[in-house]
Nucleic acid binder design. Structure first.
Length: 574
RNA sequence: GGGCCUGUAGCCUAGCCUGGAUAGGGCGAUAGUCUCCUAAGCUAUAGAUCGGGGGUUCAAAUCCCCCCAGGUCCGCCA
């Protein structure tokens, strides 16, 4: 257990003891008071009706009668609050020791012995990722990292839609179009080189009934599980998928498993789903097609019928998705999906169906809103998009300009390029993850490329600063003492570092990746204040100097571990 | 027509689930700050009817209802 957890646990137990002695029965919820009023606070409002006294009297009573403990040093009633001050010496000492001894593992919670299966990205492999879709892998990968740190055994999966219309359009295009008619792409990557076929084929499909019919037939053949058709589609989208993977790797994302939708047709598990659903009392039939009437489950709208089988007997995307979820449930203790908000209804329908077929697990879903361009929605089909690759390149280019401006005389060209890559990618991931997923974002270049203030380079810079100090030190950090760290900037910084494990726990519990970003910004900010107030290397008193070096090292570790949770590299210099 | 999500200073955003102590930050603006460990930093000032209106409560940005604006969905598409 981490030091701050111990302290918190002690306070709760002391409060429990006194509350039961006074015969006040209530749940204990501790708050964090505004600065300098204490480390934890217990509000007494809810006790007022029980005790039949004013909250102020109650807090006074508790403060007077409560015992102190190993951690709790001072207890003061402040209006309706009981404020607890924990032993700062103990917290300073144990926190720094914990960080320095745990190193890369500091912050990680104890193993939960549970497997979490996290599905993210799952984009149609019909073209390169664009920045709207890019929110998905970045949120997903960050969630993967947070769950790992929180003690889960994690597997990430990309559900590969290899049966739908989108990939069929692509396959038709690749196999029927003359390459001369397809516009050249800006990027020499397989996904960019292939997307033109999709765009042109989409256009022809709208204009030419014959094309539309041929594509329709291809869809039907693969949905019936015809191997030749599935292989043809597979061969067409595979280069696109390779291109997508390449982009993902560049932003430090790799997915453990790619699961093709066709698996569930091939192994007949989707037939099992169909049989089960047909037996449901909510099942209806219309012109040979089957549906579930969702109005019994609180679904409202013009049409509440959820079709799971067409009149020609083939299954639909959502039907196969149910089979996929049943399969996932067999292999995990917890399911998490990252989906765009346009999938909300489908996801709800799948959830209801999963309950009807008595699935063991129902996924927890994180929905994110869309990234739009100032002049409207993105669309691969209409080629009105900003591709992820373009954004990456812009970010790296911009980062390079900044590095050159600041360090051009000191660093080699190679070094500057490496640093620029790390900073550019970091800025991109941070910018997307710092906002809670449900807010819609309008993409503007100026904002995406802003490297100041609450942005990744600020945090990376703080880390580099810490590394720079450590690289110049003459002393060993062994046998440090934290008793010399008494400046407010030092104490506040240590208290912030002590919170890291709690921040991870809360980010995992609430599926709130953005809270990690906000926390890191706080740590970096606090470190910069320490840097201003407390010179490390020039400090003459050797014990103070070594204590500060230990604090710098501890900060470096927290920043590095935290950035790693966001999939951002912590550079040693920049 | 209905469902779900969002609305916090000129711009972006945290806090909302689990109501509590002066609503935190950042950008931009203005004014300072490098003979001193990287100034991508630090300090100060200005800037908020928490979309609007009701309600519940000792207490509402937070919970409930209505309204307004934006997003998204309501396919035998995915």
């Amino acid at each position: 257990m981490y030091p701050l957890d111990e302290a918190k646990k002690e306070i709760v137990s002391l409060l429990n003891k006194i509350l039961s002695k006074l015969d006040y029965d209530c749940k204990i919820k501790l708050e964090i008071p505004p600065e300098s009023l204490g480390d934890f606070a217990f509000p007494c409002f809810s006790l007022a009706p029980i005790a039949k006294k004013s909250p102020n009297d109650i807090s006074n009573e508790i403060a007077k009668k409560i015992e102190k403990g190993k951690w709790v040093e001072k207890i003061i009633a402040n209006g309706p609050y009981v404020n607890f001050f924990i032993n700062t010496e103990k917290l300073k000492n144990l926190t720094i020791k914990s960080i320095l001894s745990n190193q890369n593992n500091y912050g990680n919670l104890k193993n939960k012995n549970k497997k979490a299966l996290i599905e993210h990205t799952s984009a149609n492999p019909n073209g390169p990722l664009h920045i709207g879709r890019a929110r998905n892998p970045i949120i997903g990968d960050t969630i993967v990292r947070i769950f790992k740190a929180a003690g889960y055994d994690v597997e990430s999966q990309f559900y590969l839609d290899d049966m739908g219309k989108q990939v069929a359009i692509l396959a038709w295009g690749v196999n029927n179009l003359d390459p001369k008619d397809v516009p050249k792409s800006k990027y020499d990557k397989p996904d960019h080189k292939t997307v033109g076929y999709y765009q042109l084929a989409s256009k022809l499909m709208d204009e030419d009934e014959k094309v539309s019919k041929e594509i329709g037939e291809l869809v039907k053949r693969s949905e019936e599980g015809e191997k030749k058709a599935i292989d043809l589609v597979h061969k067409s989208y595979n280069p696109v998928l390779e291109g997508i993977k390449e982009s993902l790797i560049r932003i430090n994302i790799s997915v453990d498993k790619y699961v093709p939708e066709s698996n569930f047709v091939k192994d007949k598990s989707v037939d099992y789903v169909v049989e089960k659903l047909k037996k449901s009392k909510y099942c209806g039939k219309e012109k040979g097609a089957y549906y579930l009437d969702m109005k019994h489950f609180g679904i409202q709208g013009r049409n509440t019928n959820f079709f799971f089988i067409r009149k020609d007997g083939t299954t639909l995307y959502a039907t196969r998705d149910i089979a996929y979820h049943l399969w996932k449930a067999k292999h995990a203790d917890l399911l998490v999906n990252i989906l765009g908000e346009d999938h909300k209804l489908e996801s709800k329908q799948v959830e209801i169906a999963l309950n009807l077929v008595k699935a063991k697990l129902i996924p927890k879903v994180i929905f994110y809103s869309f990234v739009s361009l100032p002049d409207g929605k993105m669309s691969t089909r209409r080629a009105r998009v900003v591709y992820l690759d373009e954004l990456i390149d812009e970010c790296v280019k911009r980062a390079y300009d900044e590095v050159k401006k600041r360090r051009g005389k000191e660093l080699t060209e190679k070094k500057m390029n490496d640093v620029a890559e790390v900073i550019g990618i970091g800025a991109l991931r941070y910018n997307i993850i710092k906002v809670q997923p449900e807010k819609d974002i309008e993409f503007r270049w100026e904002e995406a490329l802003n490297f100041e203030g609450n942005a990744s380079p600020f945090i990376q810079y703080s880390h580099a600063r810490a590394c720079s100090i450590l690289s110049k030190k003459q002393d060993e950090i062994k046998d440090f003492s934290t008793t010399f760290l008494n400046h407010n900037s030092e104490i506040d910084l240590i208290k912030k570092l002590a919170r890291f494990p709690i921040v991870i726990d809360e980010a995992c519990e609430g599926c709130k990746p953005h809270s990690i970003a906000n926390y890191l910004f706080d740590v970096a900010s606090q470190f910069n204040q320490f840097y201003r107030d407390c010179p490390v290397l020039p400090e003459k008193n050797i014990k103070t100097r070594i204590g500060r070096l230990a604090l710098v090292d501890a900060t470096r570790i927290v920043l590095q571990n935290g950035l790693d949770l966001l999939g951002i590299v912590a550079p040693e210099e920049m």
